[in-house]
Computed example of a mutant assay.
Amino acid sequence: MKIGKLSIIIPAYNEGGTIHLILNKIKAVELMDNIQKEIIIVDDCSDDGTEQAVAAYRAQHPQLDIKYFKHLRNIGKGASLHTGIAQATGEYLIIQDADLEYDPAEYNDLLKPVCNGFADVVYGSRFMGSNPHRILFFWHTIGNRWLTFLSNMLSNLNLTDMETCYKLFDTKLLQSIKLKEKRFGFEPEVTMKVARIPRIRIYEVGISYYGRTYEDGKKIGWKDGVRAIYCILKYGLFSGK
């Protein structure tokens, strides 16, 4: 599979102090097979200078293909992803959080099953492989594994990390799916809907994880876990559309 361009979608909310760091990491990555990078930043109505930080970075690095969009009100990570997905022009796209929990140096690990002709979708799992993983919250880990288990039951997949940020998709395939969830319900919704596509080829590769604490700016909470359960049931058991 020949890929000319990879769209990197970055949903951002109040990441003004660190977004330049993740952009530096993306800039440093040399993608396999001379794949070009399209960076799409969707600012979910930040009020901490994220817009100014992105503008300064773009001015300093005009050689980078960086597109910036800003929501007029805060409506959630999923809504930011909807905006980014609609704007993507690469043959494939990957989701990248604006924080430093995931390492862009591993893009090639996710691209390999696609470039070798095996996969249409690739998930990066924090729970497999030998890469580094920061030790953090016990109950978050239990919650993630339980949500993945429930998702697998209803999607008939055998993923180890449904909630992972790193998901690589065929762009046209993803753009053809009607997505509704505006917050963290995006993860179970997209998983359930992708799993129902006939003859879809989904792969999973191990990735590292440099998790943040709430003091560092982590935003997901227990209410998002409850919503994830609702979304798994809605889009799985009840085939919500």
Rank of each mutant, 00 (worst) to 15 (best):
F169W: 01
F169Q: 08
D170W: 12
D170E: 09
D170T: 10
D170Q: 15
K172V: 04
K172S: 10
K172T: 13
L173M: 04
L173V: 11
L174V: 09
L174Y: 07
S176Y: 13
I177H: 06
I177T: 11
K178V: 09
K178W: 00
K178N: 09
K178Q: 11
K178H: 12
L179Q: 01
L179M: 02
K180C: 05
K180R: 15
K182F: 02
K182I: 01
K182E: 05
K182G: 01
K182P: 06
R183E: 01
R183T: 07
R183P: 04
F184K: 09
F184E: 02
G185C: 10
F186Y: 09
E187D: 14
E189T: 04
V190N: 03
V190P: 02
T191A: 06
M192E: 05
M192W: 04
M192K: 02
K193A: 06
K193I: 12
K193G: 02
K193N: 05
K193C: 09
K193W: 11
V194M: 12
A195I: 12
R196Q: 11
R196W: 07
R196M: 13
I197W: 01
I197C: 00
I197G: 00
I197P: 02
I197V: 14
P198N: 03
P198G: 15
P198Q: 07
R199T: 10
R201E: 06
R201P: 03
I202T: 08
I202W: 14
I202P: 09
Y203D: 14
E204G: 04
E204D: 05
E204T: 05
G206D: 13
G206Q: 15
G206E: 09
G206F: 10
I207N: 00
I207F: 01
I207R: 09
S208G: 08
S208F: 08
S208W: 03
Y209Q: 09
Y209V: 15
Y210K: 12
Y210L: 11
G211I: 15
G211M: 05
G211R: 04
R212V: 10
R212F: 14
T213R: 02
Y214F: 15
Y214G: 03
Y214S: 10
Y214D: 12
Y214E: 13
E215W: 00
E215A: 14
E215K: 09
D216Y: 12
D216C: 09
D216M: 11
G217N: 14
G217H: 06
G217F: 15
G217P: 10
K218T: 03
K218E: 15
K218Y: 13
K219I: 01
K219P: 00
K219N: 08
I220H: 04
I220S: 02
G221E: 10
W222E: 00
W222T: 03
W222A: 09
W222R: 13
K223V: 12
K223C: 00
K223A: 03
D224V: 08
D224Y: 06
G225I: 07
G225Q: 10
G225E: 13
G225P: 01
G225F: 08
V226I: 05
V226C: 01
A228I: 00
I229M: 06
I229H: 00
I229Q: 04
Y230Q: 12
C231G: 03
C231N: 13
I232M: 14
L233A: 08
L233V: 11
L233D: 07
